[in-house]
Amino acid sequence: MEKKVESFHVIHKVPAGDSPYVRAKHFQLVEKDHEAAILWFWKAINSGDRVDSALKDMAVVMKQQDRPEEAIEAIRSFRSRCSKQAQESLDNLLIDLYKKCGQIDDQINLLKQKLRAIYQGEAFHGKMTKTARSHGKKFQVSVKQETARILGNLGWAYMQQQNYEAAEVVYRKAQLVEPDANKACNLGLCLVRKGRLEDARRVLEDVVHRRFAGLGSEEGHKTVSRAEELMREVEELERTNGASPPESDMLSLEEEMIIERLDLVMNEWAPFRSRRLPIFEEISPFRDQMAC
């Protein structure tokens, strides 16, 4: 009988016991009753039963139920009861929830906050790597990878605001940290939206010619197909509007303001220079990259 009980918990990935959190997981994973699961997650939080996991799991269920606003409010209200170790994953959840709700300003502010933590050496609890989990598998993530990921998300958030000047700056910085074909496609799209077709073509050609690692995978083939589609859009725009005008070495006033603002933020992020992580020393200044 004991083996059957153990087997049940392993198969359904439900913890053993009869606490509010265990009941919530049972309703979530076995009964597929999301309303009951949310109710028992609330009870778990209020009774202090595995609060870290209960709050994160409840927010995930609410997101699946298309109730992201409630999930955001729950995290904001109860994250103070969670451990320091849980705060980073709660922030990651909030970023996804803000994106789902279209709360772009909140998403951007939180992404900048996460970059600030990395810049000051406070992310990953001061370590250079962390263990992450996806689809039940564990893997290692480096500070460099996390920085590039956050910058990519920040660039996309700016794209949603049609703030293409800021998006270009951030995407180019992400590519300096860790070149990536998908971010290159997004940078190409950004340049298309700005009408800089020749620049967009050069960026997209690198993807089409598979000058990035990992383009042999299924996901890589999708990225190449997307780049080829964007290239066709560039060619159509060139036929319709003619070749894009040559780029000036001078930055526009808006670009100057964005770069100055971001540089000021970067300076504020590191009041103690000794704590600055090596990854940021490897990144060229925004102005140098934009002038390339």
Rank of each mutant, 00 (worst) to 15 (best):
L204I: 06
D52Q: 01
E73V: 10
F27T: 00
K32D: 09
Q107V: 03
S80T: 14
I108P: 03
D66F: 06
I45V: 10
F41V: 10
E35S: 12
Q113C: 09
H12V: 04
R232G: 07
E31W: 04
M128Q: 09
A117T: 02
P15N: 06
E238M: 05
Q160T: 14
P278V: 00
Y98T: 11
Y158W: 00
A86H: 04
Y158C: 01
H9I: 00
H9M: 02
K13I: 04
F212T: 10
P245Q: 15
R276F: 07
E168D: 00
A148Q: 11
F286G: 00
F272E: 13
D263A: 10
E219C: 07
L262G: 00
C185R: 09
M62I: 14
W42G: 15
T131P: 06
S47V: 11
M250K: 04
A227I: 00
S83Q: 12
N186R: 02
E256R: 12
L154V: 08
F27N: 08
D106I: 06
G48Q: 01
D66G: 02
C292W: 03
V5R: 10
A213S: 15
R149D: 11
F8C: 06
V177E: 01
V265D: 13
Q145F: 01
A36W: 06
A74E: 08
K43C: 09
P20H: 13
P246N: 01
G155H: 00
E73T: 08
R116A: 03
D263S: 12
S284Q: 14
P20F: 10
R76N: 14
A270W: 10
Q107I: 05
N92W: 05
R211D: 11
K137I: 03
H125G: 01
E31F: 10
R81M: 13
A291Q: 14
L215A: 04
Y171Q: 09
A174I: 08
Q160G: 12
P179F: 02
S19N: 05
V224Y: 01
G216E: 14
Q140V: 06
N186I: 02
E219L: 11
R275M: 15
L277T: 15
N92E: 03
S217R: 08
K99W: 15
C190E: 02
K114S: 08
L55H: 07
E256Q: 14
G188R: 01
S225F: 00
